[in-house]
Design a binder for these strands. Structure first.
Ligand code: SF4
Ligand code: SF4
Lengths: 147, 147
DNA sequence: GATAAATAGGACTAAAATAATCCTATTTAT
DNA sequence: ATAAATAGGATTATTTTAGTCCTATTTATC
């Protein structure tokens, strides 16, 4: 779930526009992320330079760049590390056969394509497409209007 | 590991040719699979119609079809179930946003591509390419010659 | 500067998935 | 009948994932 939560968090922020500060509780409730867990996820996202965190009173999270410049690949990998599909793809040492293994090449190709797909998915497009968070069919109360 | 073990097992069998019966210990040691674990994996593969199991003395496993007609996708999915990448892809009920979510579409596309890649990888090609098991650089003793 | 409202970050716990083993039963060749 | 195999269920151990909690720190505001 952690990676999925991260996507929702970033998407919610993208929908508010870049550099708009949103407090954690709002994100948590609107994107349906356990609030305490979100603190962990946010830390990873901040380390990856995807969001900025403002501490203290009136603190919160904001997107660190324009949504156009954030993609699903980096968000997901900020949380779970490099996607590998099979260990031998990213750590050849894990299997002695790897230098000479056709199956390894298949995994590499599969991985390449997944990553390529996620890379192409930027959050401007996702937010525009009405994705994920905002048009929830479920009866969540909308956040307070932002002044 | 289970899916990887399955690939190695099938690959080893493919290298022996289809319908060649090989006993479990040989497969386990040549493909570096814990012997007791292989019993479980073999059962899944048999259920999926990929291998046939012969019980009793002189029993063992054999490929159920020509290697050309077996691919990595079915082998992997025989073990781990359908690849989904993100739960909402195969179980839309898992997330209320799914019918209206651009991120969901991205996951679907990524999944499509992984599966497509694995589907295209048949075991005749893999075996021919000298993949995985046979040309191990490690010092494993070769199996007894088959009469 | 004091206070209150936020988040940080480490320690911890709970739950689930994965990997693997073991034991008894059954099948089959000889 | 015997021995050589695998089947299959029960069980265990390990790792990963998900999530919580508590104390410390940061910052806006009065
Ligand atoms: S046998 Fe090939 S696919 Fe399997 S782990 Fe080794 S390198 Fe990877
Ligand atoms: S928000 Fe979209 S991507 Fe995330 S779980 Fe729901 S449907 Fe899937």
């Amino acid at each position: 779930m952690a990676a999925e939560y991260a996507v929702r968090c970033v998407l919610y922020l993208a929908q508010q526009g870049s550099d708009v500060l949103v407090n954690r509780q709002e994100i948590a409730s609107q994107a349906r992320i356990p609030d305490s867990f979100l603190t962990k996820i946010a830390q990873d996202l901040a380390r990856a330079g995807i969001i900025t965190i403002k501490q203290g009173a009136k603190g919160g999270y904001a997107l660190h760049r324009p949504p156009r410049q954030v993609n699903m690949l980096e968000v997901v990998e900020a949380i779970i590390g490099e996607i590998s599909l099979n260990e031998c793809v990213t750590k050849p040492a894990a299997c002695p056969a790897s230098p000479n293994c056709a199956a390894n090449l298949v995994w590499q190709e599969a991985r390449r394509r997944v990553r390529e797909t996620l890379l192409a998915a930027d959050f401007e497009a996702l937010a525009k497409a009405g994705a994920c968070v905002s048009p929830f069919p479920s009866p969540l109360s909308p956040p307070e209007a932002r002044p």
